[in-house]
Amino acid sequence: MADFGFAQAPALDPAATAHLMRIRDLVYQVAGIFQADSRLNFLRDRCERRMKIVGTVTLRDYYQYLTTSPDRGGELHQLLNEITIGETCFFRNEPQLNAFRQVVIPQTIQSKQRLPFKHLRIWSAGCSTGEEPYTLAMLLLEDSNTVLRGCTFEILATDLNDRSLEKAKAGIYDDYALRNLSPVLKMKYMRPRAERFEVIESVKAKVSFSRCNLLDDSRMVFMKAMDVIMCCNVLIYFEGAAKRRVISHFYNNLNPGGYFYLGYSESLFGFNDDFRLVHFPGTTAYRKPERNLEAGTR
């Protein structure tokens, strides 16, 4: 994780800390994203940015604003934007990608052992400007002669925002977006273009971008037979029944035994009982049970 550099913030008095904890719990209950104690200073900083804009002075007033003002839904959305801002880049969540490459993909291929055509379908839902699906494509291309020998794969990448999708299709990024990309992979899968870098064709060919509203039921029922779905920092913007509906679409669209990845510190607790929580080193994910109810664990 990035070092956010707020460790030096002056200590809060106990009452203010209590209100900050309340905001933390509210964000978790409504949006499902958790800020650990070690990130409370970060949360406080993000609240303070919003407090300046909405004109509240204390954390207590801001908590009130988040819970009782007519614009509480919109304000929570703005706060969530502040919490997740700047997180998009290539190779964003290393433990998650390690688990994807070293456990999830080999296990998924294993489960397709008996099929005549082994084909992997991966969906990056809420792909924003394309960093995540391109990262997955690079990882899978890296293993195409080993774990993925004899397999084909496709990555579907969807977003609601047309401008993000245009940028994603163009596949041109600055150094900041590539800060976690190793020099070897950068050399292999990117080519310089003006002051920036463009994703090469063989990577682009593995990803198909399209617009998708996750609340559009008629569209969601056509995203079938996925092996892995990644949906980072997207569900946090849905509430109540809509959130449950989106999650159940994801569940239905996964193959039995398929994996559902959320963003850093995101949870489905209280929103869905069908998925099983699984742990990997440094990260968690959700899994649709196998048909015979024997989701392969060890």
Binding site: A99, V103, L277, F280, R287
Partner: peptide
């Protein structure tokens, strides 16, 4: 013990495994 191992405070190296705690 498992939660510590998976959380990064194990024996100094990660075991690349998947664990379903509820099972």
């Amino acid at each position: 013990d498992r939660l510590c191992q998976l959380g990064g405070l194990g024996y100094g190296y990660p075991l690349m495994i998947e664990v379903d705690m509820l099972k």
